[in-house]
Design a protein around this nucleic acid. Structure first.
Lengths: 217, 217
DNA sequence: GTCTATATAGGGATAGAC
DNA sequence: GTCTATCCCTATATAGAC
């Protein structure tokens, strides 16, 4: 039938709504079915399990940011390329905040996906972020700035989006980019050249962020 | 009895572990009881419901950051006072990342707490953050920088903490403070006087960024 | 492709003995 | 304060008719 379009897609749309609103664990298939005007059993025709619905949504996110990610991986990571990457992702995610919120609100659910069945290349947001943040070819200070800029790019909007001015999230993108640009250029001890030392909140210098860290993979 | 110490506290400790690991919804009382060596029914002697356990943990977080929060509320918010506030919170939270992760991983669960029964003054992380980020006496640009610095302060560590150098989270605090300092001084369109465009985090002259704010309590 | 009906499991919570 | 035993409910998932 597929009254409007592909039923499978409509299921995913509704699931996206409910999973973000109530969280994956609390949202029941009954709710999804009701809101969709079908029965639970109908869902099982399209998806073998509830987890598979979540996984399908995961693939949506994946597809969305796959291209910038591939580009980033095409060469060694630098702060400049990282900034480009973030910018590209921000663009992709514009208007798709629901997908991002879904991931944000259901980290445990997502992480239990691969633990169970799937053996795909999981490049979840935190997964590949982690990979990068532990890249030993980057200094600890650089990694921290990458993480900080990541937080600014993707987590700030979720703090501020519904509040600053609902609807025109696009407006804050330029400001965010400016902030990110600044973050990635913050002076650090281990950025060799900077003798620049302000006053402000005196970082009474434990000079180097000791790192005899080893990629634990 | 209370073999080791107050049983109630032990329950909370175990619950903190499980709620952060598996998420509040997935962690069952049976699991908590088993890990504790008691039965489910025993838990109900100490807590009237599962939600109350979560709420008790919420109070732990609350107590932890209550003082800086009261200080922040004691006067109109400025970017400078905001920075002080963040710094104080970071200090408090050092060594208590579990509590923070709990909150981070269970936002829906926490938010459904007050919706149900409690009428307390809920100053959850996102709740009071939201309140501030929507303060109309601050310009949108300022609010965004507050949100961004908030993200840097509290969300960056959770991205980077397990990776940069496990165990010495303290070491990254100074660097984070420097980044935050810079974020709050990023030039914005609506910061009228922004000819101030040095490179790096300009020290001197703490904020004074206009505040015709009203304490809204 | 969607339905009705049902199987099965596990959750939170209570009663009452000790 | 902690136990055993149990109630009740809702969830996922399946079987099989249409």
């Amino acid at each position: 039938m597929a009254r409007y379009r592909d039923t499978r897609e409509r299921i995913l749309d509704v699931a996206l709504e409910l999973f973000t609103e109530e969280g994956y664990d609390r949202a029941s298939l009954r709710e999804i079915a009701e809101r969709l005007g079908v029965t639970k059993a109908a869902l099982y025709y399209h998806f073998p399990s509830k987890a598979d619905i979540l996984f399908a949504l995961h693939l949506r996110i994946h597809a969305l940011i796959d291209e910038p990610l591939q580009q980033l991986r095409a060469a060694p990571v630098t702060l400049g390329r990282w900034e480009t990457f973030l910018s590209a992702c921000m663009e992709k995610l514009e208007g798709n905040t629901a997908l991002f919120l879904l991931h944000r609100n259901n980290q445990v659910a997502f992480s239990s996906l691969h633990n169970e069945a799937h053996r795909h290349a999981h490049t979840e947001l935190e997964a590949w972020a982690n990979m990068l943040f532990s890249d030993p070819s980057l200094s600890p200070g650089e990694r921290l700035k990458m993480a900080a800029s990541f937080a600014v790019a993707f987590l700030t909007p979720m703090l501020a989006a519904p509040l600053i001015s609902p609807g025109n999230e696009a407006n804050m993108a330029p400001a965010l980019r400016r902030i990110i640009h600044g973050v990635l250029r913050t002076a650090t001890e281990d950025s060799a050249s900077s003798a620049r030392n302000g006053s402000g909140p005196r970082p009474t210098a434990p000079p180097r962020l000791a790192v005899r860290n080893r990629a634990r993979n």
